[in-house]
Amino acid sequence: MQIRHRLWLGIGLSVVASAAPMLSATASPTLDGAPLLMQLAQGGEGGEGGEGGEGGEAGVSPEAAAKDPVAFISALDVTAAHYHAGLKAFEEGETQAAGEMFAHPISEIYVDLEPVFKAQGVTPFQAQMEKASELALNKAPLPEVKKAVKAVLDALEAAAGRAPAGTASPAQVQAKLLADMIDRGARQYRTAAAGTAFEPYLDGYGFAIAAKQRLAGLTKAGKSAPAEATQAISLLEKAYPTAKRPATLPVKPEDLLVAASKAQLTLSRIR
């Protein structure tokens, strides 16, 4: 299976700061003997896969995250989704895809939000993200990769505790986060169904995992999950059965989008 490569900031092997707009492959650092940028920059932003508003990955705003706990934690959830999906992909033998999944949130989320994290007193965790990606790309033993992924997920959980204060109740925050993850998973599935690429499917697989975890968060906030939300998550699990993309996607995208819309409506009523 092919995965579209995206240019991202360094993975611990090298951090290319203040670089020229174009870098030659011969001047780039290497990974397993091959130029790193040649391996990882075979495509640009804006193609298939859901970026730029097409699928479920768009909408992480530093401005919103600085004042809204939902936007702040949603950015962390999107990051966590990449690590959940990447680890499962690694376990399935998709080591290159795993390394890239671990790397994407560095440039796509972390770098933009770093000033917000700093203002909120979040302990920096870019180094942990870089280490996870480096280990996966170098096909390190699974226990090492798992340990690195856990370090990132622990850092994300700690960062969530530093979210800015808002006017929404804890239950409302959890409901909005759950609705967001369900929506992202459904929209990413529509993107995956429009082609045969692996990456958009794997992105959505991560959102499905993150959505299920937010369902537990709602329960901890003292609210029972609406039936529509549990039904949407069940359909997400059916749509994304494994980290490996099935030859034929098992759910109609429109069915998943309808289920997600119903879940969002009922979740919006939680107070």
Score class of each variant (00 low, 15 high):
Met1Lys: 12
His5Trp: 15
His5Tyr: 12
Leu9Pro: 02
Ser14Cys: 15
Val16Cys: 14
Ala19Ile: 12
Pro21Gly: 09
Ser24His: 12
Ala34Tyr: 15
Gln39Trp: 11
Leu40Tyr: 06
Gly50Thr: 08
Glu51Arg: 12
Glu51Trp: 12
Gly56Ser: 08
Gly56Asp: 02
Glu57Thr: 11
Pro62Met: 04
Val78Ser: 00
Ala80Glu: 06
Ala80Cys: 04
His82Asn: 10
Ala85Ile: 11
Gly86Cys: 10
Glu91Leu: 10
Gly99Tyr: 07
Glu108Ala: 10
Tyr110His: 10
Val111Met: 11
Leu113Ala: 08
Lys118Thr: 15
Ala119Tyr: 04
Gln120Ile: 13
Phe125Leu: 14
Ser133Leu: 14
Ala136Asp: 07
Ala136Cys: 05
Asn138His: 10
Asn138Ile: 07
Ala148Gly: 10
Val152Arg: 05
Ala155Asp: 09
Ala158Pro: 01
Arg162Val: 08
Ala165Glu: 11
Thr167Asn: 09
Ser169His: 00
Pro170Asp: 03
Ala171Gln: 09
Gln172Phe: 07
Ala175Lys: 00
Lys176Thr: 06
Arg187Pro: 00
Ala192His: 01
Glu199Trp: 06
Tyr201Ala: 06
Phe207Trp: 08
Ala210Ser: 12
Ala216Tyr: 05
Leu218Ile: 14
Ser224Glu: 15
Ala227Gln: 11
Ala227Asp: 11
Thr230Gln: 05
Ser234Leu: 14
Ser234Asp: 13
Ala239Gln: 02
Tyr240Ser: 03
Pro241Tyr: 11
Ala243Val: 10
Pro246Val: 03
Pro246Met: 06
Thr248Met: 11
Val251Cys: 10
Glu254Ser: 06
Asp255Tyr: 00
Leu265Pro: 08
